[in-house]
Simulated scan of single mutants.
Amino acid sequence: MISQVITPKMIDIMDTKSFISDKTANNIYDYEMFGQQVVESCLELETKNDFKRLMSTFETILYDCDGLLNLLSAEDIDDGVRQEIVTEIRQVLQKLQKLGKQVIYTTNTSQLTRDQMHDRLKSAAIETQLDQLFPTSYVCAVYLKAIGFDRQVVAVGSDATVHELTEMGIQCTDLPTHCTPNRKQLGFASFKLNPDVGAVIIANDQYIPLPTLVKACAYASKSDCLTIVTNSDMSDSLIADNCCHKPDIRVVANKGFVSLAKPHYFYWKCIQQKHRDLNVDQCLIITDGLDRDIEFGCNVNIRTLFVKSNTNCLKTTTTTTDQLFYDKLNNNNNTNNCLPVPDYYVDSYSTFNNYI
C-alpha cells in the first residue's frame, strides 16, 4: 500500500515544489549558462572504462522516453534526422538489455495507454513488455488501486486514463460538456454532483471544455474528493500542449492535490508497486532533458545520466514542453539560480553506443 495519503489535507504537504516556478518574477534560466554549469558539476563519461564501471553499478534503467515518444509522433521534423536519433536510442536500449539490465520506460504522457505506448515504441523497432511501461494514465490507476480507492472517478482530458482505470476495475463517471442555465440566478448554472465520486483526475489536455472544467472544479472542491493531476510541468506560468489545468483546479478547490508525474515522488512509488524488488541504489535514470527527470532523480534519490547532444537536437525539432522550456531558458538573462544537475553526462547517444 502507498501510505500517507488518506485525506486531501495531507496531500498538500507531499507535493514537491517545481524548481522552475517563481510566482513573483519570471525567473527562468539561461540555457547556455545552465548547460555549462551541468558539464562543470557532474562526471563526464569519456572512456569505455567509465561506462563499464557505471554499468556494473546499476541493475535497472529508468529510461525517460518523453522525448522519444514526441519524436516519433512529431510532424515537423526531417525523417532522416528522426531515423538517425531513433536508431541511436534503439541501439543503446538493446545493448543495455543484452547486459542484463532491466529497462523501465517512464513518461509524463497520459494520452497513451500502455498498449498504445507499446505500439508506438514497436513502430521504432523497440520491443517492450507492458510491465515495463509507465505512462501517467496507468500510474493513476496503480495509485488509486494501491490506496484502496473504492469510489467513482471523474477523469477529464484523457480517454487513455479512463481506459487504464477501467482495466483496473475502477469505475469512471462521464462529465457532460454543457451546463443547464439557472433561470433564477442569471450568469449561474445548475448541475448536480454525484455523491459517489471520490476523485477527480485532470489530464494533460488544453482543450477541455469550460463547462467540463467547471464541473471538475466543483467535484475537486469537495472535502472528501481527491484531486489528481497527471502532469504539472510548467504549471504556474503556462498552459501548453502537454500541461494540465492544474492552476485552475487548485485555485478553485483551495486544497492540495496529488501529482502522479515526474518529478514527483508518487510516480516512483507507483513504479515500486509493480516492481517491489527495485532498489534506488541500483537504479539509474537516463534522460535527454535537463528539467523534470533530473529533479525526479533528486526527489527519489536515484542517480541520473544526461545524454547531452540529443537534447540539443530535440529542442530545435519538436514542439513539446521541453521546447517551450528551452525557449524560455534562452530568452532570459537571470542566471542566479540553483538547479538540480545530473550525476553523469555523455555528449551523445553515438558515444554511448561506442563505449557501452
Results as ranks from 00 to 15, higher is better:
230 T>E: 08
280 V>S: 08
166 T>N: 13
122 K>Y: 11
38 V>Y: 08
282 Q>I: 00
168 M>P: 02
300 V>Q: 08
188 F>E: 12
309 S>G: 09
217 C>V: 01
9 K>L: 10
244 C>F: 05
59 E>T: 12
165 L>Y: 01
79 D>L: 14
348 S>H: 11
343 D>T: 11
206 Q>R: 15
80 G>I: 04
157 G>A: 07
217 C>W: 03
285 I>D: 06
274 K>P: 00
120 R>C: 05
324 L>S: 13
297 G>E: 07
270 C>M: 01
202 I>V: 14
213 L>I: 03
87 T>W: 04
210 L>W: 15
62 L>W: 01
259 S>D: 13
21 S>E: 15
120 R>Q: 11
316 T>Y: 06
269 K>F: 03
355 Y>G: 05
215 K>Q: 14
66 D>W: 02
30 D>R: 09
227 T>Y: 08
229 V>K: 01
128 T>K: 02
175 L>T: 08
28 I>L: 14
313 C>F: 13
113 T>K: 05
210 L>Y: 15
296 F>I: 01
98 K>S: 15
168 M>W: 03
256 G>P: 04
34 F>M: 12
330 N>A: 06
314 L>D: 01
314 L>R: 03
33 M>L: 12
113 T>C: 03
337 N>F: 09
100 G>N: 09
333 N>I: 06
16 T>R: 10
313 C>D: 12
56 S>K: 13
58 F>W: 05
162 V>P: 10
52 K>D: 14
106 T>K: 12
83 Q>W: 00
136 T>Y: 02
345 Y>S: 09
283 C>P: 03
49 N>D: 15
85 I>W: 07
322 D>L: 15
119 D>H: 07
228 I>C: 02
286 I>Y: 11
314 L>F: 13
37 Q>M: 14
153 V>P: 00
315 K>N: 09
281 D>P: 06
196 D>A: 15
198 G>K: 01
215 K>P: 00
96 L>A: 04
204 N>H: 12
190 S>A: 11
168 M>S: 15
140 C>F: 00
169 G>E: 04
139 V>W: 00
351 T>E: 12
271 I>T: 02
237 S>F: 14
35 G>P: 15
102 Q>N: 07
332 N>D: 15
319 T>A: 10
103 V>R: 05
67 G>Y: 00
126 I>Q: 02
336 N>E: 15
66 D>T: 02
327 D>L: 07
136 T>V: 07
274 K>V: 07
321 T>R: 06
11 I>H: 11
305 L>I: 02
204 N>A: 15
257 F>N: 03
76 D>L: 06
323 Q>C: 12
144 L>G: 05
18 S>I: 00
334 N>K: 09
41 S>E: 14
15 D>G: 06
51 F>D: 03
24 T>C: 01
56 S>M: 07
41 S>H: 13
317 T>I: 05
128 T>H: 03
53 R>S: 08
48 K>L: 05
184 K>M: 10
11 I>E: 14
346 V>F: 00
148 G>H: 01
226 L>E: 07
236 D>A: 10
256 G>D: 05
202 I>G: 05
